[in-house]
Design a protein around this nucleic acid. Structure first.
Lengths: 356, 356
DNA sequence: CGTACGATAGTAAACGCTTACTTGCCCCGC
DNA sequence: GCGGGGCAAGTAAGCGTTTACTATCGTACG
């Protein structure tokens, strides 16, 4: 492994000169000398040591992205966006799947700090865990102290996302759309209460109800996980609660997909018997059947912007926070509620199916 | 940012002692002293600088995973497996989406090398690009020279995967299964010819045909991309080729899913008119409709094993290569071929649909 | 003709940590 | 009583870069 010293020796110059040419420093180097250095570097297959460079500069061109689970298409998209933006500047992207476990999130951030990552992006929502958030704050401040940038793509303990979307407004929109279709009994699969984003989306659901004059029924709101299985479980909980409903509004797509699956198992047709909506518009949403009505988030763009934001912070600027637009996309999983009689029939059918 | 010097000063010991306790070195340190050091470290919120440590050790606990696209569930699963295994040892995982572009792959590996990553795992198949492979070989050798481990999860230019599956055998199995269902005209969506894995799967297809005494028809094999859109395009190509078929065997799930979609648009029912099979068993495969018959790969396990393999290499051992088992899972997208008449009808219907 | 300045290149001091070597003690056995 | 051995801790030499200072050489200018 050739080092800068070897290159310097071969080119017959000092290491300072080599450094100046290979690191593209804004320092005048005689073109002839420069060429000689480049030639030597090529001959020796010299690749600068980023660690040594980082040791000196106090941080390395690495951005850590904390996600809940890279296997969740939502996060995969965001990470891809970050990667695309980061790679043009020669930054590497570290993904950290926390599984929403405070301890894992904390230890990942610590690791990122020990690596002197130049930026950490929280792709998912923050956890409502005071102990974690205190620890986190310490690490993040230490990171900022050595010059790192910190970006959130979702609400978190310390406030709003630097790059985000208006969760409440979007959710309100989809509830209103459901109401416009004629639904009055709209259930809500709320996601984990331990996530800030769940609260925002629930708030949007409530606002949607209020905006359309629909009274809220606590039996129609169930707290869940954030994956497909939770969607199925959520439907079971709703059925067990006993309050009739003609639509299910889920806090994310995975939940909605799971709900549709369970509904089918219960013999209920979507959207004939029950309409279902998601949130996020992950790639699968469009290709599921029925295709899912949902709110489309510019996931990749969020990732790209998050990195761009960090880049500006690293450059010493103080960029403004950004709220990206979302768009409602109504597909096959929503329709008018069944006629009064049909509705009653559908509801009655449920208990039977559950027993079966 | 407290450094080891600060801790040493506060604890009233030398930096050597601090290093010995915080780096868990196998060196006797008086328990009382150790406690004093730990206490000082805690007070100062000291986190060791991994760069400095790595500069000395010649590599850092970072593993780079080269994938084709992190957004592809196949790779997301593998990466997650690597991450799970890596995180227990305090390793960080860098994901690099190459999009199967030689230049990107090359530049990612170079970046990983400059960061002195301790291991690089190629999750996807190698590209059949001589220039790239030569460059790659250089970097990989340099990395091995500083102590890094290199692992492949798919066939590549230099040989078999250290951790892999038997692509040909698995593909042969699914073709045989189709033949057992009664299919004799089985088309193949082959994936990109630029990937080694495509060749292996094609080979399996051929073996399956041979094993069941079905003659091969070149019009039934079409080279494609590796994503959903390519699957749709593949169906179009097959239709254009004009040779009748009752089943489509795709080189991966995404392709199969795209094919099913296109088939539906052409008015063909799966599996009544055409059976379709995939390969990989990504999460979506089971929840698509019809659910996809495919070959299940232990994706996460592959990731875990790949890291475990690397870990052993780093420890100086020479682990054996591993071929993981795959399992055929027949679901809703496959069935018996249509009766002779129905088959003829289905084939006849195609051209019309294409025109429409 | 002396000087100051621009253009280049070199010197050497960090950056934070690990570790081979050295030092200082204390205790044991002859 | 003293040499030797073992435990603890310290010293200091790197690891590969960057960069603030210096140094050198012409040359243009007063």
């Amino acid at each position: 492994m050739a080092s800068i010293t070897d290159v310097a020796r071969l080119a017959g110059v000092s290491t300072a000169t080599v450094s100046r040419v290979v690191s593209l420093a804004p320092y005048a180097v005689n073109p002839a000398t420069r060429e000689r250095v480049l030639e030597a570097a090529r001959t020796l297959d010299y690749v600068p040591n980023a660690l040594a460079r980082g040791l000196h500069k106090s941080h390395v061109p690495v951005v850590g992205v904390i996600v809940h689970d890279i296997t969740d298409p939502y996060f995969a998209e965001v990470v891809r966006g970050v990667e695309d933006a980061a790679s043009v500047g020669g930054f590497l992207v570290i993904t950290c799947s926390s599984d929403r476990i405070a301890e894992r999130e904390h230890s990942y951030v610590r690791l990122l700090r020990s690596m002197r990552a130049s930026t950490v992006i929280f792709a998912g929502s923050g956890l409502t865990d005071p102990a974690l958030n205190a620890e986190l704050a310490m690490h993040l401040n230490a990171m900022r102290a050595y010059g790192a940038a910190v970006v959130h793509c979702s609400p978190h303990a310390l406030g709003d996302a630097e790059i985000g979307i208006d969760n409440a407004a979007a959710m309100e929109g989809i509830v209103v759309a459901l109401a416009n279709l004629g639904h009055r009994r709209i259930a809500f699969l709320a996601g984990p209460a331990s996530l800030y984003v769940s609260h925002e989306r629930l708030e949007g659901y409530r606002r949607g109800l209020a905006a359309t004059g629909i009274g809220s029924d606590p039996r129609l709101v169930v707290s869940t996980g954030f994956n497909q299985e939770s969607g199925a479980l959520g439907v079971d909980a709703l059925v067990a609660a006993g309050a009739p409903f003609t639509a299910i509004c889920a806090a994310n797509d995975l939940l909605a997909l799971g709900a549709i699956q369970r509904l089918a198992e219960l013999g209920l047709d979507v959207p004939r018997d029950v309409s279902v909506t998601g949130f996020d518009d992950i790639p699968t949403a469009a290709m599921a059947s029925p295709s899912l009505s949902t709110v489309q988030l510019p996931l990749k763009e969020i990732g790209r912007r998050a990195f761009a934001f960090a880049e500006r912070v690293l450059a010493g600027e103080t960029p403004k926070n950004d709220v990206l637009p979302t768009t409602l996309v109504m597909r096959g999983s929503t329709g008018a509620p069944p006629a009064e009689a049909a509705e009653a029939a559908a509801i009655q059918r449920v208990p039977t199916a559950v027993v079966a």
